[in-house]
Design a protein around this nucleic acid. Sequence first.
DNA 1: GTCTATATGGCGATAGAC
DNA 2: GTCTATCGCCATATAGAC
Lengths: 189, 189
Amino acid sequence: MNSKRKILLQAKVLFAQQGFDGVSIRSLAKAVNLSPAALYHHFPDKKTLYLETVQCAFAEQEHVFSKVWCSEGTARQKLIEFIECFTELMFADPAFHRLMQRELLIADNERMQLLAEDVFKEQFVELMNIIRQLAPRLDAHLAAVSVLGLVCQQLEMQPLLKCLPDWRLQHEQPQSLAKHINDILLNGI
Amino acid sequence: MNSKRKILLQAKVLFAQQGFDGVSIRSLAKAVNLSPAALYHHFPDKKTLYLETVQCAFAEQEHVFSKVWCSEGTARQKLIEFIECFTELMFADPAFHRLMQRELLIADNERMQLLAEDVFKEQFVELMNIIRQLAPRLDAHLAAVSVLGLVCQQLEMQPLLKCLPDWRLQHEQPQSLAKHINDILLNGI
DNA sequence: GTCTATATGGCGATAGAC
DNA sequence: GTCTATCGCCATATAGAC
């Protein structure tokens, strides 16, 4: 395989796990069986390597939901489908989700604008449109974030939840989780 | 003020902002007007300093919600009150929330168990009890996390949300947010 | 309890051979 | 395109004076 691609894929995993400062060029080089110097042939410096890693990881996710938005169902069916699809995606690629969390903690303004424009905007607008159809009384922006929050928080808190009462293995299965979220969203508490 | 306490309070802010690897003993020392060596009088090493910082930050939050659980209202009123209280708390102390996010990313098993037992368990059980009264059909554990997720995700995604369509300043006001979350939780979409 | 000075090591990055 | 060797810097941590 292309060395540059191999580096980017490994970097995604390591940066997601340990963050920018936690990953050294040396450790990344060892993980892909190259010398540290070899990495500098493909990237001018560590920061650029990191940014390309993030860009590469997010580019993979750009058009995942097109099939949901184009489906023939009602708005309600589309929302249910989106939640199932989004939950599956987040659980299938934890490195992506962790990278996202770290980017949000860094919150670099320029990068946030790029992420918003290139990766999230289109999907977010579609989600808001569905919500507007289903619940015109709600602020669509707030409600869209609520939908995402219901999915993401279950993932983020997983390590803690295992240590709290009434936790079940089932809680980490995306289908079971999607079902719960759909229930709570459509019927309330 | 006590030097050790001054160090811990400043460390909370810096570690929350930049993470364990992002904060050097030197930079922390400069921020509290001490030499790096002075910090080693109060803490044996950097890792211990970090752990004490986290422990100190979380200890402050232990009994914040007791007034909610002891109030005289119905289960529904208590839930509304909890959401308002929790939202206010998270927005009032962003350093605490960021530290929590970073701890979840590290996900050290021993520390998760301590956090669960000492800080979150009691509140989490109370929240589950309220939910069981309101909606026996739901898995109380999943539903409790959903409530927390609705609040936390709005905070975590803030830097990105500003760059997405239909964002309003109002979305960052805790009261306005709590109102939305209560609406969506009690009535659904 | 705080300082100055310093030991020791890992870091990002570069030079130059192959 | 990859290597070995290395530079210069900043990190954690310690020694010992005050």
